[in-house]
């Protein structure tokens, strides 16, 4: 019978060498595992009973924070601590819950890491802070505030709430935010908005790119501003918008069927700007950059 996967003939002496390498690798793996067990992760769980519109704050220097909705009026915080060089300070005052990762002497980005999984009542206001992140919140209708230097931020399925995010480098992704009061400040992180609408959607970035894919809602202000970051916006051709786009030094592209405005305060340099309306011009859309490119496209 023919072997399905015949092994190549071993070279004399090489088999023993390979076996010893495998043994060494296996031994190393065991040592690493034991070492990890020595600085064992610690899991902790905290539960709080709150009322409607509770305020939950989590401050975590290193590590992710994920927030999802809970059943009823209970806040559940599950923390996985990387080592005994970090502990969790937690406090409840009435309807406010504060969770802080407390770094102890000698803690660094690895040993001071805490992973948080937090469940909150869906109407709770959530404020998350982390240097490294990532930060994530979903399926809530309370206000969401996030702040972090390098933290990637993801916010999904939020309605009727303020979403305020600040980051230096971290990428920001917002998906399916309805009736939101959205304010995003990113210095160099890219910002991506998909299905985001509401009375105010404002993104300010210095060098990060801004990408908007949505319908611009009905009767909102959409203000996307950057210094060097490109601004891309994609909307359905039946979107109802009043657009003003201007790049001081960069190019602009528009394939959206805009009605030109008849009353302009100043002539438009078509290489650098375009203005116009579509549909009933229900939402105001301002795209402004100094040297980035602006593209407005139909989906």
């Amino acid at each position: 019978m023919k072997a399905l996967n015949p092994r190549p003939a071993r070279e004399p002496g090489k088999g023993l060498f390979m076996q010893s390498k495998l043994r060494a690798a296996a031994l190393l793996a065991v040592v690493v595992t034991l070492g990890t067990a020595g600085t064992a992760q610690v899991r902790k769980e905290y539960r709080y009973t709150v009322q409607s519109h509770a305020s939950i704050t989590v401050t975590n220097d290193y590590g992710p924070i994920s927030v999802t909705p809970a059943q009823g009026f209970t806040v559940i915080v599950r923390a996985t601590l990387a080592s005994n060089k970090v502990e969790v300070d937690q406090d409840q005052h009435g309807n406010r819950v504060d969770i802080v990762s407390h770094l102890l002497a000698g803690a660094d980005a690895d040993s001071g890491r805490v992973e948080y999984e937090v469940q909150v009542p869906s109407d709770a206001s959530v404020s998350l802070h982390s240097t490294s992140g990532p930060l994530r919140a979903e399926k809530l209708n309370g206000d969401v505030t996030m702040e972090g230097a390098n933290a990637a931020m993801e916010v999904h399925d939020i309605s009727n709430a303020h979403v305020h995010l600040k980051t230096l480098n971290g990428p920001v992704t917002l998906t399916n935010i309805r009736q939101g009061h959205v304010e995003i400040t990113s210095v160099s992180g890219d910002v991506s908005l998909s299905g985001v609408s509401g009375p105010l959607v404002q993104v300010n970035s210095t060098s990060g790119k801004i990408h908007y894919d949505g319908d611009f809602g009905y009767s909102g202000d959409y203000l996307l501003t950057s210094h060097t970051g490109d601004i891309d916006a994609i909307a359905p051709s039946d979107a109802s918008i009043d657009v003003s786009a201007h790049s001081v030094k960069g190019a602009v592209e528009n394939d959206f069927p805009l009605e030109p405005k008849t009353h302009l305060l100043a002539p438009i340099d078509k290489a650098r700007a375009f203005v116009g309306t579509a549909g009933k011009a229900a939402s105001k859309v301002v795209l402004h950059t100094i040297s980035g490119k602006i593209r407005l496209k139909t989906r």
């Binding site: 240097t131 400040t185 300010n204 501003t225």
Partner: peptide, 27 residues
């Protein structure tokens, strides 16, 4: 007016950098 608003925005961006440095974003 746009240029003036942009200048305000630029200063706000700088304020964010300072805010991050002074506040919670440094361990």
């Amino acid at each position: 007016e746009d240029a003036r608003e942009t200048l305000v925005t630029a200063y706000e961006q700088k304020a964010v950098v300072y805010e991050m440095a002074m506040d919670r974003s440094l361990p």
